[in-house]
Amino acid sequence: MLQALIDGILLGGVYGVIATGLSLVFGVLGVVNFAHAEFLMLGMYVAWFAWRWLGLDPLLGSVLSFVIVFAVGYVVQRTLIERVLKAPPAAQVFLTVGLLIAIENAALMVFGSEFRSVSVPYQVQGYRLGDIFIGAPYLYAFAAAVILAAALWLFLERSWTGRAIRAVAQDAMAATLVGVDTKRTYGLAFGLGVALTAFGGAVILPYITVSPTVGGQFVVLMFTVVVLGGLGSVAGALAGGIMVGVVQSMSTLIFPIQLQNLCLFVIFIAVLALRPQGLIKGA
C-alpha cells in the first residue's frame, strides 16, 4: 500500500511536468494542443540519440531535449498555430490533430517502428527503506521533474519574460499596451510548453521504451492530469500529475495492470461531468 503510494508519487511528479506543458499552452494560447504528446515522443528520441551517439545519460540528455524541442515548438507555433489562434475551435482541433498525425508518421519514416531503449547503470538499482523499495530511475526522474518544476515556477514568477507570459495569458490587450510582443510571447509559451513535456519524456527513458507511437500512451494521461488540475493552471497540473500517478499505481493493487488506465478514464469522465473547472481551485 505504502509502496504503491510512493511509486505513484514518483511517477506522478513526472506526469505533472509532462502535463504542465499542455496546461501552459492552453493557459496562454487558449489552444488545446492534441499534438502535445508527439513532442514528448520527440523529446524521448532526442534523449535516445544523445545517449546513443554522445553517450549522454538521458537525465542529462533531457536538457538537449528541452532545448531542441523548444526550438521546434517555437517554429511550429509561429508558422502554423499562430494562424488559428483567432480561428474557431474546430480549426484549432483540425490543425493540432493533423499535426499529431504528421509528426507521428514522420517519426515512423525517420526512426522506424522499432522500440528503442537505453541502458544505464542505475536501471535496476534502487534504495531500500524497510519494506519499501524505491527504484533509482523512478527516483531520479522524479527529482529531475521537481527541479524543472521549481525552475519553471521561478521563471514565471520572477523573470520579465515569465511575467510577460502570464500577462499575455491574463489579458493580451493589456500586455500589448505595456509593450509585450504578444506574437513572440505566444511562440515562447508554446515552445516552453512542448519543451517541458519533451523534458519529461527524456527523463523517463530509463524505464519506458520509445517508439513513434509512444505519445498515444500519454495522451489520455496528460489530459486527465490537466482536467484534474484545471486546464491552464500550472500548479494544478503538478498536483494533478501526482494524483494520477497515485491512482494509477494504487489501482494495480486492485485490478490487473492492463486495467490501470481504465481507472483514469473513469476519473477523467467523472471530473468532466461533475467538476469541469478542475478539482483544484485557483492558481
Partner: peptide
C-alpha cells in the same frame, strides 16, 4: 501610456507585479 476602458488589470497578478509589468519596455 494607455489606460484602457474597463481598466484591464492583470487579475491573477499582485498589484506589485501589475505595476512592474508597466515597466516591461524599460526592463
Amino acid at each position: 501610456g494607455h489606460v484602457p476602458e474597463g481598466r484591464h488589470v492583470f487579475p491573477r497578478m499582485t498589484t506589485l507585479d501589475n505595476l512592474m509589468m508597466g515597466a516591461f519596455f524599460h526592463r
